[in-house]
């Protein structure tokens, strides 16, 4: 379970998170909705350990471990996964090689045996098939020349391969057409189960039509101003943030 308590953080001396308290129990999917500039991406970066985001107070633990004290790669090894809002291009680095390197780094950190190239090929093909993606994806360089939709699908593929315990999806729905949106949603839904929880960060209700969250939180001005069930997302869509949060 992810437990965030009174978390505050700043970038370049400017306070963005002003005291966030949130619990995501194991097996649950929570959505965080909020307008631009409310601190949604900052929250995802703080949780995954990006440099330049300074935690000034509060705590965040995952299954009792203080994740804020860990290096980003150690957070990944404990089962945290961030699906990037803007996936990064790695020229010359093959996607299959990247994912196998990542998978083995995590397995090594956990004291598990590494997978060899053949095992990985088998594994990745199975995941690609389940996600209805093209095998071409494995041969290309990481995100290089990918369309916006392909980049997001690649994030979902990585998530499926790395099998995290907690996934943070940072506006994974932005820039997706309806088919891609469905693939992304199917990818997340396929992972749902007692050992998997997710924090789905989004602007819009439409992703939540496909991934039904257990809870919805409204983030505004660096604070969670309202929490509720899936119906809260519909209310936001119908009436806007200002009115719902008031």
């Amino acid at each position: 379970m992810l437990k965030i308590e009174n978390l505050t953080a700043e970038i370049d001396g400017k306070q963005i998170l002003k005291g966030i308290t949130l619990e995501v129990p194991a097996g649950e999917v929570h959505a965080i909705m909020g307008p631009n500039g409310s601190g949604k991406s900052t929250l995802s970066y703080v949780l995954s350990g990006r440099e330049g985001y300074e935690v000034t107070g509060g705590s965040a633990t995952f299954n009792g471990q203080d994740i804020l004290a860990m290096e980003p790669e150690d957070r990944a090894a404990t089962g945290l996964f961030l699906a990037f809002q803007y996936p990064v291009e790695l020229p010359g680095v093959g996607n299959a090689n990247f994912m196998r390197t990542a998978l083995n780094a995590i397995r090594r950190a956990r004291g598990e045996a590494e997978v060899d190239a053949m095992q990985f090929l088998k594994l990745s093909r199975a995941k690609i098939k389940a996600l209805q993606m093209s095998e071409d994806m494995l041969k290309r360089n990481v995100n290089v020349g990918f369309s916006g939709g392909e980049k997001k699908r690649n994030e979902v593929l990585q998530m499926a391969l790395l099998e995290p315990k907690l996934a943070i999806l940072d506006e994974t729905d932005s820039g997706l057409d309806i088919d891609a949106l469905k693939i992304v949603a199917d990818g997340v839904n396929a992972m749902r189960g007692p050992g998997f929880s997710a924090l789905v960060i989004t602007h819009y209700q439409r992703l939540l039509d496909h991934i039904t969250p257990d809870r919805v939180h409204v983030l505004m001005g660096g604070r969670i101003v309202k929490s509720g069930g899936p119906e809260l997302a519909h209310a936001l869509e119908a009436e806007g943030y200002a009115k719902v949060a008031a």
Binding site: E71, E73, A76, F84, L90, P91, G92, A105, I106
Partner: peptide, 21 residues
């Protein structure tokens, strides 16, 4: 950061990016 968020340590990440280059 992208590499590290996927579980690679700093050195592995540099190695991977340089080898790509």
């Amino acid at each position: 950061f992208y590499c590290r968020a996927r579980g690679l340590n700093q050195e592995e990440a540099v190695g991977l990016i340089v080898n790509g280059f």
